[in-house]
């Protein structure tokens, strides 16, 4: 359910770091000179002894985290998704993922809603990149409440992980009393005509799409998949079986992200008519959020249109 409360996921990230730092003496945050954007500065202001500035040097940033992890620290690497998934990718492979070190990568400003910074600072391929990397766990929370729950779960998970964060405030859809289970998908709404599957903050717009469809008499079953890896295959197959028609939606490329993952899963386990909503093999551009969502096809209306088209096509 979409509540009236809004939280910026990046603020939830900073506030949760403070909370977890007090519970976990080994938690450290390594910043790449972006703390006042990613809001890791909330930790620096509250617990400066847990905050290590590493400067504008993202390759070294990841390597230092790996070294700290060998001593039992739990380092959180904080930068923009675009830089973590590209500038220091070889470092993530060789000193984090391959030796399975307990480093948490927090990719801020993921997707295209990055505060008018444009394609260099947007990231539409991070899910695809980290899904393809052995040993990585990949999580994209729906809202600030789920950011906190996912970070809490990640502190109890020993291994490399990528947390996909978004910048701007968005409505809360996650119940506060629900604990986060890595690898589990969550049913947001029951329906019988079409299954909508989405991840990250896009799940808010997907719920809005379900409302639009309901107004037309189409009943949507909505599954939120915050963990892109390991994927909740059973939940995806069951949700597809429920309606026999699936639309995926994500603020990411349709190649290799949630849409790709669902297509692979259903292709292998339960072939089902499918439409993927997301960036269609293009980079973004700088603009305010509303025109970006409109131009790149991520609004609730785009998701509803895809569902309607799919149903019309499969009936034909």
């Amino acid at each position: 359910m979409i509540t009236s409360e809004t939280i910026a996921p990046r603020v939830a990230f900073g506030e949760t770091l403070v909370e977890l730092a007090d519970r976990y003496p080994d938690l450290l945050l390594l910043d790449g000179d972006l703390a006042n954007s990613t809001r890791a500065d909330i930790l620096n202001n509250a617990r400066p002894d847990r905050f290590l500035e590493m400067g504008i040097a993202e390759q070294n940033l990841v390597g230092v985290a790996a070294g700290l992890a060998t001593l039992g620290f739990v380092p959180w690497v904080s930068s923009f998704a675009a830089f973590i998934a590209s500038r220091d990718l070889d470092q993530v492979r060789v000193v984090v993922a391959q030796p399975r070190l307990n480093v948490k990568l927090a990719g801020g400003y993921s997707g295209i809603l990055t505060g008018s910074t444009g394609k260099t600072h947007q990231c539409v391929e991070d899910i695809a990149i980290f899904r393809a990397m052995p040993n990585m766990t990949v999580i994209a929370p729906a809202d600030g409440v789920e950011v906190r729950a996912a970070m809490t779960a990640l502190m109890e998970h020993d291994g490399p992980a990528y947390l996909r964060l978004t910048r701007d405030a968005s409505p809360v859809i996650t119940p506060r009393d629900r604990s986060f289970e890595i690898g589990r998908a969550y049913l947001l709404r029951e329906g019988s005509d079409v299954t909508l599957i989405s991840t990250g903050v896009q799940s808010v717009r997907t719920l809005e799409a379900a409302d639009l469809l309901a107004a037309e008499g189409i009943s949507a079953h909505v599954l939120h998949v915050p963990t892109l890896k390991p994927l909740d295959v059973d939940a995806i197959v069951a949700a597809a079986a429920r309606t026999g028609a699936v639309v995926t939606a994500e603020d990411h490329s349709i190649i290799g992200g949630l849409g790709g993952a669902v297509a692979e899963t259903l292709g292998e386990h339960r072939p089902t008519p499918l439409r993927r909503v997301g960036l269609r093999d293009v980079f973004g551009e700088s603009a305010p959020n509303a025109p970006l969502l409109e131009k790149y096809g991520l609004t609730p209306r785009h998701v509803a249109d895809a569902a309607r088209d799919l149903l019309a096509g499969s009936r034909a």
């Binding site: 390597g63 230092v64 790996a66 992890a69």
Partner: peptide
């Protein structure tokens, strides 16, 4: 491969990367 052989303190092979984990160990 530090996961394969006890006694190896870091996995390496992609050049240029080893000093950074060393920095992490020294800070730690």
């Amino acid at each position: 491969d530090m996961k394969a052989l006890p006694g190896l303190d870091m996995s390496t092979g992609s050049l240029g990367q080893g000093l950074s984990p060393g920095v992490g160990m020294a800070i730690g």
